[in-house]
Amino acid sequence: MITSLRRIRAIAGTTLIELARLRVFYVLVLFALVLIVSSTFLARISFQQELQVTKDISLGAINFFLSLLAIVATAQLLPRDIEDRVVYSVLAKPVPRFEYILGKFLGVVGLLAISLAAMSVLCLVVLHLREQSALHEVNRQIEQLAPDQLSSTVRVIHTAGVNRDLIAALVLVLAKSAILAATTLCISAFATSNIFTITAMAMVYLIGHLESIAREYWLQEHVAGWPKRTFLALVAFIFPDLQAFNLSDQVIGGVPIPAHLIEQLLGLAAFYIVSYILLATAIFYQREL
């Protein structure tokens, strides 16, 4: 099987246009609302706290909206193509189903990346403005502060504001939503309705955050009885460990994220995505169109 980048790009590009026209970007407007409303609320708290909490809530909201987007946008791709018979004219061409699935996935990732960029810019702008006003406030109080006290306050504001780890956390949010998109493709490759796919993904999402618990229980043999152990092993095998990608705690706490952890997490994300895409392809090959 000779894979053609051009074909994959054509499918991905068309998928991206298709998604962009579905008005999924309304989600971004919702995000902006959450951000603005919460930050006006938060203006009542002190500067350091306000910056941290704004950053925290923005990250949480980006995380939520991007995950939602990944699931909802991906869930309807295959059913829509089948319903409109687009899938027939595409697969009747010399297009392996693997390329079709991969193209769809990359189209979704493109959409996620654009949305993430938009939300991040919005969030960084708000943070930056808040940071500037905090620094301005400090400058105004300059007479009342000793010089070393001043420098430490400025440093606190900087750590609470925009920094490198925030970017790392955003990249990992993208990785996590890409995993969700790959998983959604897997389910929609055999699902007969969108509702089923989305419901199933809601479960995957929840269980994915608990996977580490199931895994540890299974590996440490805390549980007796084979039915329970089998169940735990299945959970620990089928579901991705989504909790691992939540680095917002570290970021908000101002604890530096070690570079090797980020690399490891990106590696894990790649591992999940490849596995789920291959599985989705395998399921899709079996499917009667």
Binding site: E18, D84, R85, V86, Y88, S89, K93
Partner: peptide, 11 residues
Amino acid sequence: FLPENAYFHKF
């Protein structure tokens, strides 16, 4: 191949 009642991408 021309599928029956093909719609293609409307956009």
